[in-house]
Design a binder for these strands. Structure first.
Length: 756
DNA sequence: GTGTCGTCCTTTTTT
DNA sequence: AGGACGACAC
């Protein structure tokens, strides 16, 4: 089992029972170490499988871990505590729902459910002006929860924060009343459950002999607290991660958790996995050089024994269109040379960049697959069906109620709904309960709806899960609605797919691991082997329906290419984390795009962008391309940019320029491209475009300014001219400065020097 | 209750 | 540019 590991990997796998931090560089065998450690603990240390807790960030990673584990040793992975933070917390809360103050069948709100709940709240709170954007409130609430802060503890120091805290409190009340829990609440509740209930806490502290954490650099503060609590300081935490690949600060990940963990727990117990088994030398050295610019790293340097390989190919084009065209030509050449399509990937910083590339791929007839986008359980028809299903367990779930009370339409319009909402507010009850107080014109229709739900709930007692889903799809009227809809075919198919998904889930639940559902029952079994789980536990088995619904919320489904399909892979750099490919194209290497200009305003934003670039570089095994465009359509406007600073942070010995290096927008030798190669967005000579043309170049006090030219300003630093207007003393230039962003300056006044 | 038009926004994303 | 959403009209 451990014979094939390198010395560092082996050391990590066979560490004694103490906290440890494994700094695992990209491609250094991180997952392998993690799973082998688990296998080693079970086999060599005789640790029972159910005394291990392994936590990951994605369901995919959890599944991968279990699959690899089963390959290492014969093992029944059912009932093992391997899953995502949210999945495991869900499990804790279902098992101890009473102590957590929840219904056993509590519903989980996903991001969009949460947003609509907040919108509803704002409306009923009478916040009519758009003073508080729902998204802003949502972000505030989630941030507080991720810090473990309840409404009463929010530090409200001004009107804004007091209002936010107030909205947070109301939102929380609303969730309580409806019996729903959002993603952050899963973690916070589970944390509080352990914190406030000594018996339960001690039970789990005793129960777990080892805690293993994957992607530790992505933990947020609450997750770290949760781990600390569960460990009680004595259960060893084996944390694996790479601070250089921390790219999720924007959603609360705290990179400092790694350093804190080392300082507080794993001091002297840090193992570095620095041998990279993925990339050739040029690629790896480039990545090392780039990331070495970051400060405060825990520090490591990847190496490979695979040889230098090929240098990174760099191509600069005049526009995003030409960049895409060049990409396609190059990809075609690769395919002609026998490269497998799904081993070729195009990465980009932001999703908007994919359109041009997709268009070019499509025109060239190359099959491609875009990662990201809508996932199965996020589709509207699926969410509608799920909303009906949610009402069966809990008709007081107002979010679900409002979603489908008039979908398909059944004559319960906005007016009726408003009246009902008001009634519910006055009686402090759910919409469902408020129906009995309703005496308006649409009362009969409301009663019909209530009856429909009751009738479905009755069927839930007699039908199995897939039958029930089918029944609901039909009797809700969803099926008929989409049958009548001329564009409803896909949606109908998806609804049919939902029935299939339910069947698969029901079948697997009996035979295989699922984070909720039958596992709770098994958990009790295991618990009884060593000691009873504290607290009154009378209902152990979660209904298949409730289990299926939590599955739908916690695992929104794949958004990956279907297996077996050989297609070029397109995705954001974020989405590429954890993946690897023979050939990688990183596109859009321009300042303002990558690093993204918005990041410059954020604390440590540039360093996070650099880590992102590091992740991008280290995806490639053998061949790596970097492309950039001097101009690009962004938000409907052509924008000119400088080369990304990241490009200059890679030593030139690793780069091979395929385009003439001096054609850069960075130089002042900007020349208008020939009209034939431009596709309409660019200013053209003559005709209606004359005005635009006049503004491409301006002469002020002997200096010739042109769009795309690099200039330097004594205060703002280096930048690129993106627009010119006026002439003589009126002449103005919009300049994108590398460090301070866009400014509009009067050319007659600003002390600008042309960079040569 | 549905369809249309105008306005706004636009980094990254999992659970 | 293009999508999402809300206001307004039929």
């Amino acid at each position: 089992m451990i014979e094939q590991l390198n010395p560092q990997q082996r050391q990590a796998v066979t560490l004694p029972d103490s906290h440890a931090l494994v700094l695992a560089g990209a491609g250094s065998g991180k997952t392998r170490v993690l799973t082998t450690r688990m296998a080693w603990l079970m086999q060599q240390q005789q640790i029972s499988p159910h005394r291990l807790l392994a936590v990951t960030f994605t369901n995919k990673a959890a599944r991968e871990m279990l699959a690899r584990l089963s390959a290492l040793l014969p093992l029944d992975t059912r009932g093992m505590w391997v899953g995502t933070f949210h999945g495991l917390c869900n499990r804790l809360l279902r098992a101890h729902h009473r102590d957590a103050g929840l219904l056993q069948t509590f519903q989980i709100l996903d991001v969009s459910d949460q947003l609509s709940a907040i919108k509803r709240l704002l409306k009923s709170a009478g916040i009519t002006d758009d003073q508080y954007a729902p998204r802003e409130v949502q972000r505030f609430i989630n941030r507080q929860k991720e810090e473990g802060v309840r409404p009463a503890q929010v530090s409200a120091y001004d009107a804004y924060s007091r209002n936010m805290a107030d909205l947070y409190a109301r939102y929380q009340d609303q969730c309580e009343r409806e019996g729903v829990v959002d993603f952050a609440e899963l973690l916070l509740r589970a944390y509080e459950l352990l914190k406030n209930n000594q018996a339960i806490r001690e039970h789990y502290q005793r129960r777990f002999a080892h805690i293993l954490v994957d992607e530790f650099q992505d933990t947020n503060n609450l997750q770290y607290l949760w781990l600390q609590l569960l460990s009680g300081g004595s259960t060893p935490i084996f944390a694996v991660g790479d601070d250089d690949q921390s790219i999720y600060a924007f959603r609360g990940a705290n990179i400092h958790n790694m350093a804190d963990f080392e300082r507080d727990y794993a001091k002297g117990n840090v193992i570095r996995l620095e041998q990279n088994y993925r990339s050739h030398g040029h690629i790896l050295d480039a990545a090392n050089a780039l990331i070495s610019q970051n400060t405060g790293r825990l520090g490591k340097n990847l190496w490979t024994d695979q040889g230098a390989g090929e240098p990174i190919r760099v191509y600069e084009s005049a526009s995003d269109q030409l960049e895409a065209q060049w990409l396609i030509d190059e990809i075609k050449a690769l395919v002609r040379d026998g490269h497998i399509k799904h081993e070729i990937t195009v990465l980009y910083r932001s999703n908007a960049q994919s359109r041009v590339i997709e268009h070019a791929l499509f025109s060239a007839g190359l099959p491609y697959k875009v990662y990201g986008g809508l996932r199965f359980f996020e589709r509207q028809e699926i969410k509608h069906a799920l909303a009906y299903l949610r009402l069966l367990d809990n008709p007081n779930d107002d979010t679900a109620w409002l979603r489908v009370v008039n979908f398909p339409t059944r004559g319960i319009g906005a007016r009726t709904q408003e009246q009902l909402i008001e009634l519910a507010q006055n009686h402090n009850c759910s919409l469902h309960e408020a129906v009995s107080y309703f005496d308006g014109r649409s009362g009969a229709r409301l009663l019909d709806f209530v009856q429909l739900i009751q009738q479905m709930a009755h069927q839930a007692q007699v039908l199995n899960l897939p039958e029930l889903v089918e029944y609901v799809v039909k009797h809700s009227g969803l099926k008929a609605h989409y049958q009548d809809d001329k564009d409803g075919l896909d949606r109908l198919e998806n609804l049919q797919e939902l029935v299939t998904a339910a069947a698969v889930f029901a079948a697997e639940e009996g035979a295989q691991t699922h984070p909720a559902g039958r596992l709770i029952e098994r958990e009790i079994d295991y618990g009884l082997q060593d000691e009873p789980i504290p607290g009154p536990q009378t209902e152990f088995l979660l209904s298949p329906l409730a289990a299926f619904l939590s599955h739908a919320s916690l695992e929104a489904g794949d958004n990956q290419a279907e297996r077996g399909e050989d297609a070029i892979q397109l995705m954001t750099v974020h989405a590429a984390k954890g993946l690897e490919f023979d050939s990688v194209f990183i596109s859009g290497l321009e300042d303002g795009l990558f690093p993204h200009e918005n990041s410059l305003n954020e604390r440590d934003g540039l360093e996070e962008e650099r880590r992102l670039m590091y992740v991008a570089l280290t995806r490639a095994r053998k061949r790596l391309y970097i492309t950039l465009a001097q101009s690009r359509m962004i938000h409907g406007k052509t924008r000119f940019s400088m080369r990304s600073r990241f490009l200059s942070e890679i030593p030139s010995k690793h780069l091979k320029w395929l385009s003439p290096k001096e054609s850069s927008a960075f130089s002042n030798r900007y020349t208008m491209p020939s009209g034939a190669t431009w596709r309409g967005q660019m200013p053209r000579h003559g005709g209606a475009q004359a005005n635009t043309l006049a503004n491409v170049g301006v002469e002020v006090s002997g200096k010739h300014f042109r769009v795309g030219m690099g200039v330097t300003h004594p205060k703002f630093g280096d930048g690129t001219i993106t627009r010119l207007s006026g002439s003589g003393p009126e002449a103005q230039a919009e300049i994108h400065f590398r460090d301070v962003g866009a400014k509009t300056l009067a050319l007659g006044i600003a002390k600008l020097d042309i960079i040569t």
